[in-house]
Design a protein around this nucleic acid. Sequence first.
RNA 1: GCUGCUGUAGCUCAGCGGUGGAGCACGUCCUUGGUAAGGACGAGGUCAUGGGUUCAAAUCCCAUCAGCAGCUCCA
Length: 640
Amino acid sequence: MVKITLPDGTKREYKNNITIGEVASNMDSLLGERALAGKAGGVPVDLSHPIKEDISLSVITENTEEGLEILRHSAAHIMAQAVSRLFPGVKLGIGPTIENGFYYDFGLQHSLSEEDLKKIEEEMARIINEDIAFERTELPRDIAMKKMESLCQPFKVELIKDIEDDKVSFYNQGEFVDLCRGPHIQRTSKIKAFKLLSVAGAYWRGKETNPMLQRIYGTAFFTQTELNKYLKFLEEAEKRDHRKIGKDLDLFSFHEEGGSGLTFWHPKGARMRNIIENFWREEHFKRGYEILYSPHIAKINLWKTSGHWNFYRESMYSPIEVDGHEYILKPMNCPFAVLIYKTKLHSYRDLPLRWGELGTVYRYERSGVLHGLLRVRGFTQDDAHIFCTPDQLESEILGVIELGQFMLSSFGFNEYEIELSVRGKGEKEKYIGKDDVWEHAESALKIALDKKGLKYTRMEGEAKFYGPAIDIKVKDAIGRGWQGPTIQVDFNLPERFDVNYVGPDGFHHRVVMVHRTVLGAMERFVGCLIEHYAGDFPLWIAPIQMRILPITDAHIDYAKKIQAQLLSKNFRVECDMNSAKINYKIREGVLEKIPYLLIVGDKEIGSNTVSVRSRKKGNEGTLPVEDFITNVETEIREKK
RNA sequence: GCUGCUGUAGCUCAGCGGUGGAGCACGUCCUUGGUAAGGACGAGGUCAUGGGUUCAAAUCCCAUCAGCAGCUCCA
């Protein structure tokens, strides 16, 4: 007999070698049906796993994260089986689950196309229909290795080489066998909904020097409804693509003639950016920041002193020769702030100094990583550098967090995840700066987060060599994560540039430098905003806030009069004077996502009213112009 | 940078060896229309760029540039 401890603490006795599946069915027939795998002593195992000793046991069922992972992992195996059937001789790589799905890497001469994906899906459906059992076998390492060698699976051989255990486990479904830790579902028919999504190249084991395999991405769910929901989400994400919306709304463009990763802001995009930047400056001034401007290029020696030339040369644009000196396009703004700081001696009484800069930097990003506005080669950081004393660090961090929260909520981001990156244990030589300085800085960051009552994940060993950091990741309207504010303490530059302040003791002390961004870069942030709002910008950001639509040419004069009235109130207002019909004009305005369309005709003339059609509510009826102005002024003030 | 795919009118795309098409947008004219597309006519292209194959290339091949999906990278 074996004694099994259940998650609720109750103990039950069963005959020896009973399987987990049997235990589950014994406890509750419904549980038995919905069981996918178990956890024996905390280790995930198959339902067919026999229990030989007293152990704690839990059952992994459908509709749990763990259950879904097992399902998807099994789906990956079924995909590999289908590919093996269709392309005999395929070399199998790895096939793990990932967030929202799974993938499998294949070494294959034939390059896979979308049509192949369809064929593979059909084969998978066949395998699922065949209702094949997943069977686990264990082999000694050397025999396992020979088995994979005889099957001509070099990648699997390599994987086995790295396994430390003496025993290696395999799973097979019918003719297909794969090296795998498991667990898996019992039978292929358990997969009720799956879809293959895309195919792309991927290096074997993620190393650039390794051969490139073909990776098929797919996903699987317990029900078709859930799959459909996920596919809908993908569709929604595609609709929000800032590259498409940016083109449709005439916000920005890129040009072959200009160069990759260099943004051309059109009037409407520039207008948005300007609104954001003005808001940004105002809020910074309110919080005791000053604003700097610095050059776009500087002599190479400055970058040698800062260390950038040494560490990040591959990411910098090549030197430009001027008058026998080499100049570099700036990849960062910080050395400039340091130079300005050093133009005079600073007393501790002057600190903290908070210097912001919307500084445009250029970084040579590898061609394959560029992506719309989100990853570019030239971008404007909403940068700031805070020079303070060690004692001020905590309150400065607190101030930055508060500013960050304020800015994010202004743009409709209210959910975030926070990471605190600190030194790794036992590798102090990797980091610059003294121990006590590090400890002080790390605790200042931590205390600031705690004081704000913010939850965060401590990331051991994730700190840069020059200081600890806080990274805030925001969630957009459909739950996707985006890089938000970052706060980075920097011990490197103050050392390299010998940046000091005079303390109360009359001696020079090393200044503490904090580097931070709130929005990141204007390019990336605008890209993010486009996707977050799907182009339906709140009134205060919308490049065009309202458009007046005269019903016939006879109403143009009145429309212009209203336009002038609204312009005088600083609204961004257009007048549509095309001779198209009103329905047509409305359609155009709606497609351009203009928050307010103001229709004017005979009814409005004389009563000094406008017929309001809002993007949010549609036809809102006729309103005196003054009332309309009051309403939108409120809406702008509330940033809704 | 790597693998695969793509580049045809302002936009979205069809054409895939025999000297270029559609819809929308644009222009002119007609129409003066009340909450998501009125009509007619017209203008627009060295088919990304540079080579090659061929009697003949938008179409096949190579290179370059640019984009897309990933991988790798992101101070």
